[in-house]
């Protein structure tokens, strides 16, 4: 699905992503874990077009998509959510969802004046779809609330909702569970699994909550210092010495050995 080859992204002398090579298989829910500063979010930003890579390539279904702008990737079916939820704060939740997908016929200046009927139909279909998504996410009571005023967890759900407005191929979720309570987290996990099973979405998930990762992700990729360190099931990587070292530092292991 997605193949990242020897990807670099440097900020001055700092190498946030330093030669990462990894693959995300079609139909999988791939977990991406690693200590803070391992380069996970930067990797997302480069894949999703928010940042240009310093070097390296990103291939999606055999096509080179390196450095394409986010709106073009969107139309190729590559979507992402943000670590800190983004929303159009002055619009309602329904309107937020209805902004997706871009490139509707109403966006052409000409159609605004002559294609009113077609646009109205399109908008109706979108509104119905948005309501359906809100229902699915159990936040339909917020449809007419300004999105800037809802809680952080609800904004996360809205982010997830955005990806459900279109038939995405692959969705990158950046700490979708951070700051979300347990019940809501379960809803999110269920949603991800259902979208994966029923609609064939491929997911790549950054998450620090290992329970969450263990529940939905296979395989799990570990990143450290801008590179891929290991890959496997959660149990496999938990037993991997290099991973323990990256997370806990070298000292601890020696102490454990002494004790």
């Amino acid at each position: 699905m997605i193949r990242v080859e020897n990807l670099h992204r440097h900020f001055g002398a700092f190498r946030a992503v330093d030669g990462a090579s990894l693959e995300i298989a079609k139909g999988s829910i791939t977990g991406l874990v690693g200590p803070n500063g391992a380069g996970k979010t930067t990797l997302f930003n480069v894949i999703a077009g928010a940042l240009e890579p310093t070097s390296g390539t990103v291939i999606m279904d055999g096509e080179d998509i390196t450095g394409l702008p986010p709106h073009e990737l969107f139309h190729k079916g590559l979507l992402r959510t943000f670590q800190i939820a983004h929303e159009f704060s002055s619009m309602t939740c329904r309107e937020n969802l209805m902004m997706v997908p871009g490139g509707q016929s109403g966006e052409r200046l000409w159609n605004t004046w002559v294609g009113r009927k077609r646009i109205a139909e399109e908008e109706r279909a979108l509104a119905a779809k948005a309501d359906e998504v809100l229902e699915f996410l159990t936040i339909s009571h917020l449809a007419d609330h300004p999105a800037g005023a809802i809680s952080g967890g609800q904004k996360k759900l809205l982010e997830l909702g955005r990806t459900m407005m279109v038939d995405a191929k692959i969705v990158f979720l950046d700490e979708v569970g951070a700051g979300v309570n347990r019940t809501l987290l379960n809803t999110i996990a269920d949603t991800i699994v259902r979208l994966n099973a029923e609609r064939g979405y491929t997911f790549c998930v950054i998450e620090h909550d290992m329970d969450f990762i263990g529940r939905i992700c296979d395989p799990v990729i570990v990143m450290a210092e801008g590179k891929k360190l290991a890959e496997g099931t959660l149990d496999e990587i938990k037993a991997n010495e290099a991973v323990i070292e990256a997370y806990l530092g070298t000292g601890l292991k020696n102490k454990e050995a002494l004790a």
């Binding site: 702008p69 986010p70 969107f74 704060s89 902004m99 871009g102 490139g103 955005r162």
Partner: peptide
């Protein structure tokens, strides 16, 4: 308005 409000998100929604 969306683009003015949040450029990153507008791009991710596929707005050119």
């Amino acid at each position: 308005r969306a683009y003015s409000d949040n450029e990153d998100l507008a791009l991710l929604s596929g707005i050119n």
